[in-house]
Write a protein that binds this DNA or RNA. Structure first.
Lengths: 186, 186
DNA sequence: GACTCTCTGTACTGATCGGTACAATCTCCG
DNA sequence: CGGAGATTGTACCGATCAGTACAGAGAGTC
């Protein structure tokens, strides 16, 4: 048997795309095996906990990416307008301008939410907190900052749903552009 | 064997809840059978096309409900403010103030979108058109009306995702209240 | 070259998948 | 009351599910 020396770091993104495309229940081991090029032996070697562990680690990896590239910059930003623009640019790139779907959102809607409730909740909570903090620092009252940050979270998710529903990625880009104005208004 | 005289009309809503809760791929026939109280014999008697037909008819039923209770009133409304308030009230009730999820949105995000693309797209297209028409009649330019109606579609979907992700139905109610102001602004 | 330890493919498990077949029972209509 | 057609439960189908067992191959170490 050959040894393909697959790294965990190479596998997780592929796993992520499978879960994105088929959801938790739809992502069968056969699909995963095909997408990763790994047999069950390897899969269960890396993830003894099976599908649940795979999904959990994928979520954690996504969370870590957002923590580094989106949340942390938001928290430590000097210029609010610049920070918001950067956040929007980052999310637009991450979601491939609406052609890619949010795995956390997919899990949130499905039955998988129960199993991953903490991770799902945390992701949005930390994003929302970081954004609200920034908006607060830009002069908005904390209640307005809260409401606007919640509006941003929900607009991003909704734009992804609608873009995919109508098969029109431009919906997402339009929503991000409008969100930028709305976040900084007044 | 008894005859429970189950009406198609009684079955569809139950089917809808099963699909809502588990998604298309997650809704197994065993789950459906249990929820409806119907054996496979009855299920396949009513829906010879199996799961796909069930899902298709559920979508059609939902579409019909919205057509009658939301879209049509929007198109024929006299008073825009009143019509929007009615739409928001209707959707808030339908989605049980954020505790219920949108089946069309669930399908849109999953792999089932491909099979039901036309129905999924149509639902949002007709809602968006009806709302844009109304907003246009209220004096907004057609491009602004379009953008705002798109914003409404996406806010509803996003609010449902976020409410479920954070397990906080109030997010949905807040979003609907804010949407009302935003739709009628200026 | 032998000993590990890591990685991998394959064969297998029992359970469950969606779907079919069919006979038994019911309701309705005359 | 006696068919006819609608409705039902159950047994069954092959395929596929998630997961296990395990032997063999690779690489590193001595």
């Amino acid at each position: 048997m050959k040894k393909t020396v697959s790294e965990r770091a190479d596998i997780l993104p592929v796993l992520g795309e499978v879960f994105r495309a088929h959801g938790y229940e739809g992502a069968t081991l056969a699909l995963i095996s095909e997408a990763t090029g790994l047999g069950k032996g390897s899969l269960y070697h890396f993830f003894p906990g099976g599908k649940a562990q795979m999904a959990g680690e994928v979520l954690a990896e996504i969370d870590a990416w957002f923590e580094v590239n989106i949340f942390a910059p938001l928290r430590s930003a000097e210029d609010p307008a610049r920070a918001i623009a950067a956040m929007l640019k980052g999310t637009e790139e991450y979601f491939r301008s609406g052609r890619r779907v949010c795995l956390v959102g997919v899990f949130a809607l499905g039955a998988a939410r129960d199993s991953f409730a903490a991770q799902v909740n945390d992701y949005f909570a930390r994003w929302g907190d970081a954004l609200a903090l920034l908006l607060g620092r830009s002069g908005l009252s904390s209640s307005v900052a809260r409401r606007r940050s919640e509006d941003a979270m929900l607009s991003i998710q909704g734009a992804l749903v609608l873009a995919r529903a109508r098969d029109d990625a431009k919906i997402f880009s339009r929503a991000m552009a409008e969100l930028k104005l709305r976040l900084l208004a007044e």
